[in-house]
């Protein structure tokens, strides 16, 4: 317990990084995932094809590869600099990788949500004179979102845990701190593991409860 107690401050700081990575990537994934969903049902075949190829590639590539690609490929090789500060730069590279990967799952969840919206909803919208974008934005997507709150919650929990892979881009989130502590306090490996596992449970459990509650609350009565 000594390790966890002595290093409480640095552990919290590391978990705070996990929270920030999760929050920013979740927001990015929601936006990109929604855009991809719109593209996948767009009247233009080229948009549909682009989104389909993107989702297929992103969803079927291991996250470690995606993050190594953003870190080494985009960051080191192509030299994309998002900030002068290397830690901030790595943070944003990790966000790009996590968003690129997670948005594919958000897109698939939303698309299955769209399938739960009766076709008559879109027909009624079109018959009022709403175009494709407004029909999607005002009528079908809001209903799709409400149908997939629970799966989106699962994706958010997965994302939270996936942020541990950001260590390959050099972001000092919780799992990095855990490895450092294990090196320093080699005699307390089990306690350290349990402590960090409990930290992730504490982060993810409320998310699951919140999304479960939201999904009941937001469900569309038909």
């Amino acid at each position: 317990m000594e390790a966890l107690l002595n290093e409480g401050g640095t552990i919290l700081a590391a978990f705070w990084m996990t929270v920030r990575l999760t929050a920013v990537s979740a927001l990015g994934s929601l936006v990109l995932g929604t855009l991809l969903t719109a593209m996948r049902v767009a009247p233009l075949a080229s948009l549909r094809a682009t989104a389909t190829v993107y989702v297929t590639v992103a969803r079927n590539t291991p996250l470690t590869l995606v993050l190594l690609f953003t870190g080494l490929g985009i960051g080191a090789n192509l030299g994309l600099e998002l900030s002068d500060d290397i830690a901030t730069n790595n943070f944003w590279l990790a966000v790009i990788g996590l968003t690129a990967y997670t948005s594919a799952f958000v897109c698939e969840a939303l698309r299955s949500g769209l399938n739960t919206v009766p076709v008559g909803q879109a027909e009624a919208a079109r018959s009022l004179g709403l175009g494709f974008v407004k029909t999607l934005a005002l009528i079908t997507l809001p209903q799709a979102f409400r149908a997939v709150v629970a799966p989106l919650g699962s994706i958010l929990i997965a994302l939270t845990k996936n942020t541990t892979i950001a260590l390959v881009v050099g972001v000092a989130e919780a799992s990095v701190r855990m490895r450092e502590l294990i090196e320093t306090y080699g005699d307390q490996v089990i306690e350290i593991f349990l402590g960090f596992a409990a930290g992730f449970v504490l982060l993810c459990l409320p998310m699951g409860l919140l999304f479960g509650w939201l999904s009941k609350r937001l469900a569309v009565a038909r």
Binding site: P118, G120, Q121, E123, A124, A125, I139, P142, Q143, R146, V220, A221, R222
Partner: peptide
């Protein structure tokens, strides 16, 4: 006006 009403459910 549709057979199944199609009011916007949300």
């Amino acid at each position: 006006v549709f057979q199944s009403f199609n009011l916007f459910a949300h």
